[in-house]
Design a protein around this nucleic acid. Sequence first.
DNA 1: CATCCGACACACC
DNA 2: GGTGTGTCGGATG
Length: 959
Amino acid sequence: MTPDEFIIKWQRSTLKESSAAQEHFCDLCQLLNELTPAAADPTGAFYCFERGAIKTTGGQGWADVWKDGHFGWEYKGKHKDLKAAFVQLHRYAPALNHPPLLIVSDMEQIIIHTAFTGTVPDQYTLTLNDLRDPSKLQLLKWAFSDPEKLRPIDTTAALTERAARQFGEWAEALCQRGHDSAAVAHFSQQLLFCLFAQDIELLPNQLFTRLLENGLKYPAQVEQMLTNLLDTMATGGLFGSEAIDWFNSGLFAEVQPLPLETADLKTLHSFTKLNWSAIEPSIFGTLFERGLDPKQRAQLGAHYTDPNSIMRLVAPVVLMPLRKEWQSVQKEMLQLKTAADAAKSPAVRDKQLTKLRALLTGMLEQLNQFRVLDPACGSGNFLFLALKGLKDLEHEIILAGEQLGLMRAFPTVSPHNVLGIEKNHYAAELARVTVWIGEIQWMLQHGFSLSKNPILKPINIIEQRDAVVNADGSEPEWPTADVIIGNPPFLGGSKKRGLLGDDYFTALETIYAGRVPAGADLVCYWFEKARAQIDIGKARAAGLVSTNSIRGGSNRKVLDQICQTTRIFNAWSDEPWVNDGAAVRVSLISFGEIKTPPVLNDERVAVIYADLTAGSSEIKMDVTTAKQLKENAAVCFMGVSKKGAFDVAGDLARQWLKLPNPHHKSNKLVLRPLCNGIDLTRRNRDVWVIDFGTDMPESEACFYEKPFAYITEEVKPIRQNNNRESYRQYWWRHAEARPGMRAALHNLYRFIATPAVAKYRTFSWLDAIFLADQAALIITRADDSTFGILHSCFHQLWSLKMGTNLGATPRYTPTTTFETFPFPIGLTPADTASNAIETLNSGAIIPSVASEYRAHAIAIAEAAHQLNQLRDHWLNPPEWIDRVPEIVAGYPDRIIAKPEYAAQLKQRTLTNLYNKQPAWLVNAHQQLDQAVAAAYGCSTELSEAEILQQLLQLNLARA
DNA sequence: CATCCGACACACC
DNA sequence: GGTGTGTCGGATG
């Protein structure tokens, strides 16, 4: 068939839809050289006419033609309403497997609507005559063979980001003109809603666009016109000659348009060209929060929390349990249907059908009664996504019921299903709008008309109040709900008082005494309250976002309690989270009374522990039960906490070293090279520190003229403003001078250091003259055996598991990683405490230990010494450097690059070395691991989990 | 007195 | 511009 033949045939045709549709479609297939449905798929399972038609009644199907993964196609008679056909396809899209294209035709026109998820919908209209145009015909051909070719480039996410950025910039300009940011936020939300309402035709005839155009002609009238429009939206009524629906909602309760300039009107007018109906409702929230807060304004238009991340909580907590229930109900319904169809008497049949109806009604009623609470709902995007998920599920159930021949139910899941608590007045306001926009969008996209008068029903879904402390200092009640979701605010324990104020802090302390440690992050109060709600039966489950630090320290207490009174059934332990610029990492935690196997980081596990690690079915290992060991006490220390600029460049220190002092003592006594993490992971920076020790009086310190003058200038002013009496009083000393550490270092000529926060857990030797800064942790031992044990895979694994994180980077914490670590028997810190060390022929240094452990000590020390030497040669190749004696005796030689090797030497850092993982390094570590494994008396073939399990057992046995 | 934390801060490859 | 490491106030035990 040629296009001309097709056109002539169908121009003439006056047949009705029912008689002509299939023939029209078959002709099209011929024209496009495609197989007809029956020829392509005789079973009709993937490509057929009348998909979803109920065979027994011959009733209307979901689509006239359906090709799985391609399109749903609906015909109407000539000049009939194609919009209605489109609405029908939309409504049945879930039953049709969400085809990417929804095509409607009245046999003269063919309209292809794209419906790829997450893209801005597009449409192509083809008239009969267009079929002569090969490029138009190609579109149709793609619909049959390769619908991906029709995927719009613009995603709704991209559209949303673009709109957010543009709108944000515009709002920022308003703020810069001196308008109050809260007023700008409120006004911009009103305008945004107008743009949305216009694009879904709630505001008729492009009314908002025309208003802006008139405004450009009569700038003086703009403010009055806008006031009139917004006022009319608040109450419903006439705007000019146009009838405006009653929108209601507090959004329009307060109308005070800001003065707009011509440029503003032009910008707004350009916004009307965007497709606001396809916008993600969460944009409103993002815009609001960023537009309102001057600190966040720089982020306007930047990233916003990705819906997929939110679904990682909404899915397991809200949707999965309901889906599971629906599956079992559906199974029962299918059995009843089969029984009814097979029934011999109408009475029996009716009885089965009544039961069937009751099951469906029951399921829908359950959905209608379902309540989701977000007690920190912000601008409502969690609630919006929960509502959308519930509506999708309800729709699916309704369609399944219809398929069983039951009468179609009207969807009843609506904003009444979601409850929110939000402290911020405008965010709360906005959350209501966000949820309603989501509702309206969903209804229209699924072919349902909106119920009006008002459009935004006065359901009090969002309460504006504090969720964890009442104004009178008492504990707030949360409404009863089925589940709790949300992303509560994070605020580190020590920042709480400063940001929230003394009264609020005291109230928190009082209300949650014994439940949440006072040093915990603010987010923990939401976790504890959610746990309590579940405990008293006011919720079944909760899914909350938290800082990833909830896995350790005092924050973990709330998870410990959760694991005691209920159960964590789903978690993501450490995920990057969108928060512009900052390296924020979060844990997503779902807990409560939902019977489902636990899933951690998308993998089935046997149990999830409070630190968000898992036990497998073979190895159950809750390392949070590990105890601090006596034999490890007072060996690992954090370096000094200076709290002031006591550090000076090496060259300045050297100048001072040469200067005399009035009391004839050298500055050498108060000047030492400093070591922090960077000195360990990169190269030594040659930074020195003025150190008046732990108890030198000011009267003596001032004899060291230059250093004292320096800190009088640089440190004293700052320290005298410190909140702590002792820091103010002893300003010339380091705030935490670590007397314990200094005592433990006594008589050691070297010690072991490791960076507190570092990508790799490396240990290095430092000459005793070095002073460790707080970001360097030290172990007060000089023997290679201890060094080797710490650098073995045993301690590496343990420290990773037991330590915490600063953002994405592991952090070593003395109490939880070192003091809990069970050293091999006979080689514990208690066993190596004696200073009686012995140097072997190789140069390795072993501690004096009981004779039966001496062989292990030697083997480990040799391997460790070898590792350290290899590493040192790599870090400081003798050919590239000069070793220069320090100007004063008693300091180690300086390592100075030969000029031609300076750049290369700069790259020789421990982090770079471990990034590269050269074979010799891997081998050296393997040798070491073997020696240490022998000391533990275990195989070198153990898996990581097995090593950890053995260490945990050893720890518990010793504790 | 010592340790821990950061909806981070910032220097430097 | 990404990578990697660090400050310092405040709280706890």
